[in-house]
Write a protein that binds this DNA or RNA. Sequence first.
DNA 1: CTAGAAGTTCGAGTGCACTCTAAGTCAAGG
DNA 2: CCTTGACTTAGAGTGCACTCGAACTTCTAG
Lengths: 139, 139
Amino acid sequence: MKIGELAKRSGLTAYTIRYYEQIGLLPLADKDASGQRNYDASILTWIEFLGRLKSTGMPIREMLRYADLRQKGSGTDAERRALLVAHREKVRAHVANLQANLLVLDAKIAGYADAEKRIEIENGQPERKPLRAGRARTF
Amino acid sequence: MKIGELAKRSGLTAYTIRYYEQIGLLPLADKDASGQRNYDASILTWIEFLGRLKSTGMPIREMLRYADLRQKGSGTDAERRALLVAHREKVRAHVANLQANLLVLDAKIAGYADAEKRIEIENGQPERKPLRAGRARTF
DNA sequence: CTAGAAGTTCGAGTGCACTCTAAGTCAAGG
DNA sequence: CCTTGACTTAGAGTGCACTCGAACTTCTAG
């Protein structure tokens, strides 16, 4: 497939695909007689994995390290594994941090809900939330 | 307190504190007679909250929107709350995505572990992992 | 009193990860 | 055959969030 189709299928732009090739994240693509890149569908698996590393916050430098090891092939397994294990720990820590912050966010939001309630009470019975109304969503 | 101490206590650099003030994330600081910024400890609470928004991935633009509403004061509660609720949803989605990617990472790492085991088997009993050895660390 | 640490402003520089422009070549449909 | 869209390269530009340099003033400890 050509770069345009790979772009569509991978979700990357053609610009980004060339950029990734240039920096070494993607292998140098095979070119046809006229110099156009020709991709095998198998590249999609690699791009998808890169996407996972990226979306878990791995910087390109580190993805490059992994890509280098991968391209070197056999004998780099232990190092590749170590790299992923280290990354996994960072991701786990990040998730834990996000979850802690979610709790703070919950508390903050609850505080605003309370404030709104207090205002409603100060204003008397608000017509948009009648006393006996069950599951009425106000907004 | 002066900017240097606030920097120490908040974990931001003095540069960043001035930058945040300049863009409006922090209120214009009171200045003493000679023009040096003088902070009340209460600013730390706000900085800490900004840090939580930041570490959950909120871009500065959006923090600015929140800071603006906050500074406008009363009457903006509903909008501030809505902003936080929307952000919370994004964070939740992000956490879910990270967790899904962690599972893929687990599988990938397990694959490397298997590959190492296969190599050991191909090489016969590896001396670095004797059959009955308990907690030997190899590296 | 004075050296040096810490403060000030303004504007320029950095690092990351793209994203696009320009100028040209190639390919596929009418 | 010809247009139009997709492709090529090299290099410049973008947006974000800082981070720093320069030139200057002020505070503080000895």
